[in-house]
């Protein structure tokens, strides 16, 4: 299983407009092709998870995630906000790179946790923020995932 296969170009946004955590979450959800009602429910669930503790894991990276009945398969999105937003991250630094993961409550192939784990692993690479900063288009993001072999 490779992370690369879960991302589509349409679900990668290198220039997020949001200026707050909530706006960023909404923008990320909008990258997933789901209807408006489902977007609203995903937003609520993601907020509930954030309220338990921020998914900002430090070094500018956040991994908002949830399971919800409104999606029928695992979906992921990536967003970048170069200037950063306050995400209440562990290291109290602004978050600039966002990996969104949503999955149905039950998946046949059970890839939710492995995907979450791989993104966490990718985030630990020492040069990852510099490399994410350099990206100029979604294809380069996909190539980076491939290069890192995650």
């Amino acid at each position: 299983m490779e992370l690369r296969e879960f991302f589509t170009e349409g679900a990668i946004q290198l220039d997020l407009k949001g200026e707050s955590k909530d706006e960023i979450l909404k923008e990320l959800i909008a990258l997933l092709a789901v209807d408006e009602k489902s977007q609203g429910i995903l937003y609520k669930m993601l907020k509930r998870r954030e309220n338990l503790g921020s998914t900002g894991i430090g070094r500018g990276i956040a991994i908002p995630h949830c399971r919800s009945l409104v999606v029928n398969r695992l979906r992921v999105a990536f967003g970048r906000k170069t200037s950063g937003v306050d995400f209440k991250a562990i290291d109290e630094q602004p978050a600039r790179y966002f990996f969104l993961i949503v999955a149905p409550p039950l998946e046949v192939s059970n890839r939710y946790l492995p995907v979450l784990g791989k993104i966490a692993q990718f985030s630990k690479e020492p040069d990852v923020s510099a490399r994410l900063d350099e990206l100029t288009n979604p294809l380069e993001f996909l190539a980076l995932l491939q290069e890192k072999g995650v």
């Binding site: 429910i41 609520k44 669930m45 894991i57 949830c66 009945l69 946790l113 784990g117 966490a120």
Partner: peptide, 27 residues
Amino acid sequence: LEIQDLKTQRRELGETPSRDMQEAVFG
């Protein structure tokens, strides 16, 4: 729907692999 999603989250947090990851990755 929301209740069911919360119950899913609750169940998963009670299971070892998920709990370990939530603690290790997200503190």
